[in-house]
Design a binder for these strands. Structure first.
Length: 610
DNA sequence: TTAGGGTTAG
């Protein structure tokens, strides 16, 4: 190349660069003048814009950050020429400005464009290699990769997040555990197998400073998937690496066992906590109230209350809820209500859960007036009355045969936007059925199908039961077939309902056949199954067979209830076996059962016969 | 930055 030519090129490039600088300065001036107002300018200046001028403007230290932001937004939204579209370099220049100002939230917004915009779509590695920029602050690439990783996590782009993690590892960057925690939580929420465990392992291998926080998230994820043992193994493994479980880790495991009703292991975990000197907090007590309540150790619950008071544990809404639940389950509604009042007096805000527990307790004890008042109270407090609570109340009304009140509540709630669900329809149908209003009962279930709701096994069972009660076994059987064709497996109640239907009709053979079928399907007959069969045998005079069944029950560890005793005593009485009848009567009383009118009349009948 | 509470068929 001749010297002349070279000079020519240099001159040209110099004049271009000076032109760029001129227009950059001009635009900067306009930007400064316009302050916080959106950027506006004439078209000749815009047509001068190229990536050089743009970068000159964005890196101009005289230009305040908000003006850079205005300009960047203008570029992103207003320009249609592809050559003027902000490229990677433009984004990074802007990011550098933001970084100097410490505005990391805004950097994440800009990174989103780099990662997801159709014309960019950079991986972290590509972003750094294409840009190839240097920075006086060596922490900048570390921070930028971390933010890149977080943006991927926030947007659930797990593939990209993994690549960003690998890049940081490859570059020897210190990886922030808090970013990894966000990833773990996102993975756990997405229910993607145990990917969170795999990632946790990579964290440990990669030298991330893992704390009890990330460990607990992973253990919780495992517990929620039913893999409590795996969670405990991880806990032991990490203890060996110096990461010790804290009260929350233990609560997670305790709660998982209690939920699974795996009560045998709870004591072991509690002893472990004692050995490790981990003190209980409110959440621990919440789980323990449920645990001791479940295994019937009521004095232990009382002891817990004392201990809590002694230790001045701050009782929160969760703990109140489980305490109120415990009182409700024991039928001490007065104490439950007192606790509810205490909660509000303390300034805690009752929520739908506490209301739900108390309303359910009141409904179960038939105190519908009080339950209804609580519902109104809830609405006044502005707490959203959810479907569960409405269903609970409806069930309460139905149990008492107060169908008009139930219907009224449905109507009122529907006006407020409540949409009956499969539970609602079932509750209404079985309520009607209990009052022998079979046609209305069926209509509720049909209405449900009309509303495009898919009937589940319970709904089918209720409908089968209604047909059985009407004596229409043929239709009941048809439905039994139909539900299975639709992929709904019959459960123990379905079998019991059908067995009862057959037994009442004297079709004992069919009843026994169903019992065998349920056993073959892995469903063990229970007290209800036997009571129906005993009833069937008694009604059709086969008291000896009934007695055989009755004995079989105890062999299987099943405890007869009032209904079983009533049925067998009445059968024996009719057969003039009053001695046997009285023996069983005494047995029933000694077991603490309260006989109802039917037992008495059966016995009286048997006395007259002798 | 990690955990905990209620309800629904015979």
């Amino acid at each position: 190349m001749s010297t002349k030519k070279l000079v020519g090129i240099l001159e040209k490039s110099l004049s271009r660069s000076s032109a760029n600088q001129k227009s950059a300065a001009k635009i900067a001036e306009i930007l400064i003048k316009s302050g916080l107002k959106p950027f506006r300018t004439n078209s000749s200046l815009i047509s001068d814009l190229n990536s050089n001028t743009i970068n000159l403007i964005l890196s101009n230290p005289k230009l305040p950050l908000h003006s850079c932001t205005q300009f960047f937004n203008f570029l992103r939204t207003n320009l249609s020429l592809p050559s003027q579209k902000p490229n990677l370099q433009t984004h990074l220049t802007f990011i550098r400005r933001l970084y100097k100002a410490g505005n990391f939230e805004e950097i994440k917004q800009v990174l989103k464009f780099i990662i997801f915009d159709d014309n960019l779509r950079y991986s972290v590695e590509d972003m750094f290699s294409v840009a190839g920029f240097e920075c006086d602050d060596s922490n900048f690439p570390v921070k930028l990769s971390d933010l890149f990783f977080r943006v991927c996590v926030d947007n659930k782009r797990f593939e990209e997040a993994n690549r960003a993690f690998d890049y940081m590892k490859k570059m020897g960057f210190k990886i922030d555990e808090r970013s990894c925690i966000l990833y773990l939580v996102a993975l756990k929420k997405c229910d993607k197998g145990d990917s969170f465990l795999g990632f946790f392992r990579r964290m440990v291998e990669s030298g991330v400073e893992v704390s009890v926080y990330s460990m607990t998230i992973v253990i919780d994820g495992l517990c929620k998937r039913g893999e409590i043992e795996k969670g405990r193994e991880l806990m032991n493994e990490m203890a060996g690496k110096g990461v010790k479980a804290n009260v929350i880790t233990y609560n997670t495991i305790l709660n998982a066992y209690v939920k699974r009703k795996d009560f045998g292991v709870v004591d072991e975990v509690l002893r472990l906590m004692e050995r490790e000197e981990v003190e209980y907090n409110a959440a621990t007590y919440t789980v323990l109230v449920e645990y001791f309540g479940n295994i019937g150790k009521h004095d232990e619950v009382e002891k817990l209350f004392d201990e809590m008071r002694e230790r001045r544990v701050e009782v929160d809404v969760h703990l109140y809820t489980s305490m109120i639940h415990w009182h409700c389950r024991r039928g001490s509604l007065k104490k439950a209500i007192a606790l509810f009042d205490e909660l509000t007096e303390k300034g805690l805000v009752p929520n739908a859960h506490v209301y739900g527990v108390l309303i359910n307790g009141l409904c179960k004890t038939g105190q519908m007036e009080a339950a209804r008042m609580l519902l109104n109270d809830m609405q006044r407090q502005g707490i959203v009355v959810n479907q569960v609570i409405v269903n609970t109340l409806l069930h309460g009304y139905c149990r008492k045969g107060m169908m008009d009140d139930a219907l009224r509540l449905v109507a009122v709630m529907e006006k407020k936007g409540f949409e009956p669900d499969v539970f609602t329809y079932n509750i209404m149908a079985s309520g009607m059925s209990r009052l022998k209003r079979h046609e209305e009962a069926k209509r509720w279930l049909f209405m449900m199908v009309e509303k495009q709701l898919k009937p589940n096994a319970v709904n089918f069972t209720t409908l089968i039961d209604i047909h059985c009660k009407e004596g229409n076994i043929v239709e009941a059987k048809k439905l039994f077939q139909q539900m299975q064709r639709r992929g709904e497996s019959p459960n123990i109640v379905t079998y019991n309902v059908l067995i009862d239907g057959h037994s009442k009709k004297g079709e004992l053979k069919d009843a026994y056949k169903l019992r065998d079928e349920m056993e073959a399907n892995g469903i063990a007959p229970d007290v209800y199954t036997y009571t129906s069969l005993v009833h069937g045998e008694c009604s059709f005079g086969e008291v000896n067979e009934a007695m055989k069944l009755f004995d079989e029950m105890s062999q299987k560890g099943l405890v007869p209830n009032v209904a079983t005793y009533t049925v067998i005593i009445s059968g024996l009485s009719k057969k003039e076996s009053s001695d046997e009848a009285f023996r069983l009567y005494n047995e029933m009383i000694s077991l603490g059962h309260v006989p109802d009118q039917r037992v008495y009349s059966s016995l009286v009948g048997s006395l007259h016969a002798t």
